[in-house]
């Protein structure tokens, strides 16, 4: 996702001379193409995230479209107030890009686990929040961001992920993407856990359970219309994300469901159970540890009372 992001940003910057990229001293063997192609619109500000956001705001107030880059929690939680006051308050055209979503840096320790960013960024006024599932969604997200004006947060995985979509997904601003169709259960996945959702779909299919899988790259704005419609057709909705469960995408869906009239589907939220992993785990192991793998997801669906008769 990281390299796709840089590649697409270079393409956009070639067309749009207003695009700048700032980094807080991270992006080795990733940002170099932009650095080389647009030296006048690239700055490594040093290890200074708060300053980076302020500078981005100052540039944006002067007419530029600015992307700021770092990893894990550094460009979000470290400089949260700068994002709130400088970017959101002034409704500026700045996109915060963070690489290392969830447990991408699982073995590096909790400082490098990006888990609370979604909940925190979601509540900021004017903020848009995009969590692509794969390189294809990432490319589309960058291109959408370049036709959009305003604060945004782009949450990326790491380098080298495979595409989960078989072809270019129909990505539209604020819209969910229907990946597989199904009747009984709907899995709403954000980020690269979409891959686990797809595997769970196959496991369920073998047992005669029909599972729809949707990718939800836009957590804000949320595709309320489509999801509200889905409430009428599915018995069970499962949300899946690599975030602390409180306040993140699953919470957004819970809020939506809770405020609807009439019959409602059951909701199961799957995320990191408000916990800290003190030991080292590769991303896949960390996911298993937190019950975010396909098998755990399938068991969750299979154990649901609706399906216990099957």
């Amino acid at each position: 996702m990281r390299n796709t992001f840089v590649d697409q940003l270079c393409k956009e910057a070639k067309k749009n001379k207003k695009i700048w990229l700032l980094t807080a001293d991270l992006g080795f063997s990733a940002l170099e193409p932009f650095m080389r192609a647009f030296p006048g619109r690239y700055i490594n500000v040093g290890v200074a995230e708060q300053n980076m956001i302020g500078i981005a705001a100052g540039l944006s107030l002067s007419g530029y479209k600015v992307f700021v880059y770092s990893i894990a929690n550094f460009p979000t939680l470290r400089c949260l107030e700068q994002i709130r006051n400088d970017i959101c308050y002034h409704k500026l055209d700045v996109t915060v890009v963070s690489v290392g979503a969830g447990f991408s840096y699982g073995t590096q320790g909790y400082t490098h686990h990006g888990l609370e960013d979604v909940a925190v960024m979601r509540c900021l006024p004017h903020m848009n929040l995009i969590v692509p599932a794969d390189p294809l969604e990432t490319r589309a997200a960058v291109s959408l961001l370049c036709t959009h004006n305003g604060p945004a947060y782009l949450r990326l995985g790491k380098a080298g992920e495979k595409n989960l979509h078989t072809k270019k997904p129909p990505m539209k601003w604020g819209k969910a993407i229907k990946v597989t169709t199904g009747r009984d259960v709907l899995i709403l996945a954000s980020g690269s856990l979409l891959g686990e959702a797809q595997k769970a779909h196959d496991l369920a299919k073998d047992q005669g359970i029909s599972v729809a899988v949707w990718s939800l790259p836009f957590i804000k704005p949320l595709d309320k219309k489509t999801i509200t419609l889905a409430m009428k057709t599915f018995k069970l909705i499962v949300t899946l994300e690599e975030s602390q469960i409180d306040g993140a995408m699953g919470s957004a869906i819970a809020e939506l469901i809770a405020e609807q009239r009439g019959t409602k589907p059951l909701l199961r939220r799957m995320g990191v159970p408000n916990t800290i992993l003190y030991n080292a785990y590769e991303q896949n192991d960390a996911r298993k540890k937190c019950g975010l793998d396909a098998r755990s997801l399938f068991i969750k669906i299979r154990g649901h009372p609706f399906f216990s008769q099957i």
Binding site: N51, G54, A57, G58, L59, L61, H90
Partner: peptide, 25 residues
């Protein structure tokens, strides 16, 4: 009023961004 302030420690960074923009433009 150029920018909203009130939380200390924001102004100089914003000013750096504006000064950079002036140079670039």
């Amino acid at each position: 009023v150029e920018v909203s302030t009130g939380s200390l420690g924001h102004g100089l960074s914003l000013a750096c961004g504006m000064a950079l923009a002036a140079k670039a433009q």
